[in-house]
Design a binder for these strands. Structure first.
Lengths: 227, 227
DNA sequence: TAGATTGTTAATCGATTAACAATC
DNA sequence: TAGATTGTTAATCGATTAACAATC
């Protein structure tokens, strides 16, 4: 099977597999779908089907080679190539993201950070000087920016998204509490932290009917696979 | 239909409806499922089925009353009651979250913030003094904390989760790049920002086969509903 | 009343799980 | 070779969409 028609939901799971194989490096040479399913609290079937979308990474009677899968999944996710991103909105969340060590580890470099508040312009954040947002469009025209991250207040977010779109930025990661609509040309991931807090709040109030992990060991990391 | 057996996926969508009705307040008195679907880029069927899980909020021939739905959805999500949360990990991300205005707007109050770094202990973050994490278990025993937010490095996260569990905290929102397993007693939402960045990276590299929004108007917010 | 729009049931679609032949 | 474990197809399960009777 080629790279066409891979369900979106499989793509969303891919980073988790990557993370798992990354953590396994050095610890073991190989792992079977069943062992991995136990680690990840999923099913072996799902792992095999998910991975098979990208080619035959496993070996019958052996399993998956940890080193190989780590490399292959990294390539699939674009971790092997340097990628540049910019942050618009140099508030607390923007600063936090600018300093995420994992982003760097994974090959993403901060190319620029922008704001409209004169009092923060010129400050050094994550090794980069904050510039005025007026210069954003121009900056994007001169630098190869793959990802635009929005950490502005809600009001500013759509305007920034439009600048990103016009400049041909590859994709948007939006943290402003507004939904930015993706298009075929411009994938967008909207991350609404408050939404996650609220759905968690609901689940807390209704925890009785939570997933029926058998109670023998409440905080265990025991897997619930049946296969 | 009662509150039993509502699919998890519906719950995850609920905050989005809430956000939408919140934004509509004052602007209009009522809205039909079709109009709302256009706003939200979903289908009217899905909206009607989702909302019907919680009771008959709509009125035939009229639609949904904005004010009423805002109130009802707020109640369902627990926004009407004061809820306390603590943050463990007073780094940049922890500070950012402590200052999220939307969390407060929605009824969540920061009860405490903890770290192990002596140089940050005693600092004021979001109106709360940073305490040493050694005092976390005791603090939880003395205060009614609904949600525990983890913004520590990966290594510390499981230990903190265990303290939360032992203290009977209602639920966990985890930002550390580790999966904390939920149990029936303790719902957990793991938010892996790097995972979202990586799946976006894949989508950028494969944007050709993105969802086929018709190209007539690339950046439009035009709805794609068919019903 | 006639038109609009819900709540809900039935039909469709997609995702997960189970099963097993292929093969290391 | 025999045992293990994959990749893949078929069966099941769940979620979305379509249709429509109920009713404001």
């Amino acid at each position: 099977m080629g790279k066409k028609g891979i369900p979106e939901i499989v793509i969303e799971r891919l980073p988790r597999y990557y993370r798992c194989f990354r953590a396994l490096r050095g610890k073991r040479e190989k792992i079977s779908s069943h062992e991995l399913a136990a680690e990840m609290h999923t099913s072996a079937s799902q792992i095999r089907l998910d991975l098979s979308h990208f080619g035959g990474f496993g070996l019958q009677g052996y399993g998956y080679n940890v080193e190989e899968l780590h490399t292959k999944l990294g390539q699939i996710l674009g971790v092997d190539q340097a990628q540049y991103y910019v942050i618009v909105g140099a508030g607390r969340l923007g600063r936090a993201i600018a300093n995420f060590p994992v982003f760097q580890e994974v090959g993403f470099s901060l190319a620029g950070i922008f704001d409209i508040d004169d009092s923060v312009i010129g400050q050094d954040i994550g090794g980069v000087r904050v510039s005025h947002a007026d210069g954003l469009a121009r900056f994007l025209g001169e630098h190869p920016v793959r990802i635009g991250i929005i950490t502005t207040p809600a009001e500013a977010a759509l305007g920034v998204a439009e600048i990103f779109r016009a400049a041909g930025v590859g994709g948007i990661l939006n943290f402003a509490p507004v939904d930015i609509a993706p298009t075929r040309q411009l994938p967008v991931t909207n991350i609404h932290l408050t939404d996650r807090l609220l759905s968690l709040s609901w689940r807390i109030m209704h925890r009785e009917q939570e997933q029926d992990v058998s109670r023998k060991d409440v905080c265990s990391l025991q897997n619930t696979t049946k296969e």
